[in-house]
């Protein structure tokens, strides 16, 4: 018969000592952070990784097709989507992100132990306490460049991982007979609620609009993976084949760059982030930064996520993100 061990006698002093030691050690071993910081990459050279990252995703699509052909039968598109998602799903992080932060083929910043040490000192969330800032309990996401846009590798997890859930909400709504536009709206609203609560603002104090952009684009990647007018994968004459290669250029926009698309911060976090952001004001005149921001401005458009955020701001449910932009911070400091 199962039975628990007899209760231990009270050992208050030693337990307090142990708990203190526990948290002390925890602090010493603190993770640099969960967030990404594109400001740190300002002025640093990065190779464009579009082809490399495309090749990595296409390799996985090729392998999915080979796997489907080994089974040799037709499958529902939703099953195919899930099979792809499962191929790169890992513990907490996405397999593509894990690869991109480790592969010697990927040009990224920070990269290597020395630059990582510099990053830990300088990065925009470095002013917060590693003990109490939950956003810093996870590793940081280095910056990579895709089609001229600087983005955190966490966007790969958002685009190919979190977006799977967006797409599932979208499909569920569609299965209930909701129109595509309404289904999209429901998925995006639900995604925003997740980012406000469990995935973002409530946990780390940061609501990343760039994350939402990647989630949204990823939803359409999954939708068009094996359905619609121009799918990537088709089942044709009893054979699965990759009909159209994946290309990140179809999805990445300047809004994925968190130094361009500002996050929304809770007050306690903003107090720590703002002084660090101020330190980057002189860099706005750096030729590389200026050229990139001008290029971004040319490519900028009003996205579905931005429309939703504007609605929330108008309803007083969210603060205006423009107040957290580098331009706003530097203008305020100059006056």
């Amino acid at each position: 018969m199962p039975a628990a061990a007899r209760p231990a006698p009270p050992r208050f002093g030693s337990t307090v000592l142990f708990v203190t030691l526990l948290f002390g050690l925890g602090g010493a071993g603190a993770a640099p952070g969960l967030e990404t910081d594109q400001f740190f990459a300002w002025g640093r050279h990065l190779e464009d990784m579009t082809e490399v990252l495309n090749a990595r995703v296409n390799l996985e699509l090729d392998r999915l097709v080979a796997e489907l052909n080994r089974e040799g039968r037709d499958r529902r598109c939703q099953k195919v989507r899930f099979r792809f998602f499962k191929r790169h799903r890992m513990l907490f992080f996405d397999g593509f992100e894990t690869w991109s932060v480790n592969s010697p083929l990927v040009s990224r910043s920070p990269s290597g132990p020395e630059e990582m040490r510099e990053f830990e000192q300088r990065y925009i969330y470095g002013g917060t306490s590693p003990l109490f800032d939950t956003g810093r309990w996870m590793p940081p996401s280095p910056t990579v460049e895709v089609n001229g846009v600087r983005l955190g590798t966490d966007k790969l997890t958002h685009f190919l991982g979190t977006a799977w859930y967006y797409h599932r909400w979208y499909r569920k709504a569609r299965a209930r007979g909701v129109t595509p536009a309404e289904a999209e709206d429901r998925a995006v609203h639900r995604g925003l609620q997740h980012e406000i609560t469990i995935l973002g603002r409530a946990v780390s104090g940061v609501l990343s609009l760039a994350d939402l952009e990647a989630n949204y684009e990823g939803m359409w990647f999954y939708e068009h993976l094996c359905a619609g007018d121009d799918p990537h994968i088709v089942y044709d004459e009893a054979v699965w084949r990759l009909r159209r290669s994946f290309d990140l250029r179809d999805y990445v926009t300047p809004e994925w760059d968190e130094s361009y698309q500002p996050n929304i911060y809770v007050r306690r976090k903003w107090r720590k982030v703002k002084p660090r952001m101020l330190g980057y004001c002189p860099m706005l005149e750096h030729p590389q930064v200026r050229a990139r921001r001008q290029e971004y401005a040319k490519r900028d458009r009003v996205t579905e996520t931005e429309k939703l955020i504007d609605e929330m701001v108008a309803a007083g449910k969210l603060p205006d993100p423009s107040g957290f932009s580098i331009k706003s911070v530097c203008r305020e400091a100059a006056n």
């Binding site: 894990t98 592969s103 990582m116």
Partner: peptide, 12 residues
């Protein structure tokens, strides 16, 4: 794991 992984940021 892949031999090239540097695990500076994180590895699984």
């Amino acid at each position: 794991m892949p031999a090239g992984y540097d695990c500076t940021t994180f590895c699984e």
